[in-house]
Design a protein around this nucleic acid. Structure first.
Lengths: 233, 233
DNA sequence: CAGCCGTAGTGGTCCGACCACCCGAGTGGT
DNA sequence: ACCACTCGGGTGGTCGGACCACTACGGCTG
């Protein structure tokens, strides 16, 4: 009953595709536990080393999760799991590509902020305000960055699209922003950032999607423009 | 002179971070060739097996590229390389998450189409029209899907943001759309799709960004809405 | 000089052993 | 009867070495 699939590509690559297919076909449910590495290797007729590489690949993709001493499990396959590696793109990009990513972020984040303005609840708004206040009460750049991230994260979460939130999370990865800000915050940007955040907050309170969208677009666009001019010099 | 870095996480994970750091710090340029697996393993004081898993992980991320018999090379680190795995998300998502991804695609693709309307050249427009015509002259669903993909790909390419194009490529992966369309095309959607494509094309010819944006948003939004109602039933 | 061809070196695969960790069954005490 | 502890089996993690498949380069041949 074995398929004896002809050789196409490397053995490991085949194993990756086969396991991925099992999940795509629904024969492996999210959270379910897989057979042991040794079993899987024997089943596909490959060595454990190759199977381990395949598992490693799927682990990196966020499809599988290996727990030492326990077993291998399928993740919940939520956007957060699968888009974890997305941050690597932002970490390794540079130059013109950074501007491109910032443009993507501007588009998505402005839309998300607009959606949030329409849907945000009192509780979610309180979370946003917590970080807004905390950000205004400290001068430690590290802490400001943290609350800046949390501020936007809370807003995006209120938009209700988990996948979009996961993508934006990658585009706002800590190292990514730290790199851009390294020079940016030396300008008069601190005060400007606070004003822009205040504008976004006002629009959220007023439940005004259009104003929120514009404010968020302007906010990200400021950084984008600054970075653009930096590159041309 | 060895660092003797204390144990944090698994050995392989450490190796991944170290190589990634080498690239982020610019000590490894895009296209450059790395030392051999055996060298790298010895250098970091780990076994070749573990090093291979680390390399496999970075290969999956699109950071490295292994050429059998030749060596390991750093990719060009362009968006296309790094976002290759993005398609897996679309392939493995289902249910409500598909709607979320389609919403992201609607936002990005409408913006990209708007940008394209403003910037598109005569040559790029000809490419778009080629696929538009080909799509109207066949009834083979498989071929229609191909030209549909190429139609949108050509437009997005004209927007001039390679990173955005790479993300949309993942969100429009073949298997993703095939799954959604399986039922969709049984409706009166064929004719409607052609009309919508024509509308997008008209806006491109007129170099009217706002019209192009609206047409693209409506186009993707149609499918999105259909999928949404499918899920609630 | 052009083209073939062998060989050194690379990644790809396999094997078997051992280590580090998790978990549940069994054991002892209360 | 119940609980806490222990300990063993099974799991993923690591290691070292061997061999295979392929590429690239240089010398050899015509």
């Amino acid at each position: 009953m074995d398929e004896t699939a002809p050789q196409k590509g490397t053995v490991t690559q085949r194993a990756i595709e086969q396991i991925k297919a099992l999940i795509a076909e629904g024969r492996l449910e999210p959270g379910e536990r897989l057979p042991t590495e040794r079993d899987l290797a024997a089943r596909l007729g490959i060595s454990r080393s190759s199977m381990r590489e395949a598992i490693r690949a799927l682990t990196v993709m966020g499809v599988l999760e290996a727990r030492h001493g326990s077993g291998i499990y399928v993740t919940q396959l939520e956007a957060g799991d699968l888009l974890e590696t997305f941050g690597v793109v932002a970490d390794l990009s540079r130059g013109p590509q950074l501007v491109e990513l910032l443009e993507v972020r501007r588009i998505l984040e402005s839309t998300a902020t607009g959606l949030a303005a329409a849907r945000i609840t009192a509780g979610e708004l309180a979370e946003v305000e917590k970080h807004l206040a905390a950000m205004n009460e400290t001068d430690d750049p590290e802490e400001i960055l943290s609350h800046d991230l949390a501020f936007h994260r809370a807003i995006v979460a209120a938009a209700g699209n988990g996948s979009m939130a996961a993508i934006l999370e990658g585009l706002s990865s800590r190292t990514f922003r730290a790199r851009v800000w390294r020079g940016y915050q030396q300008e008069d940007a601190f005060e400007r950032t606070r004003r822009e955040h205040a504008a976004i907050h006002r629009a959220l309170v007023a439940h005004d999607p259009e104003a929120a969208r514009a404010a968020a677009a302007a906010h990200v666009g400021e950084v984008e423009q600054w970075l653009r001019t930096q590159l041309s010099s």
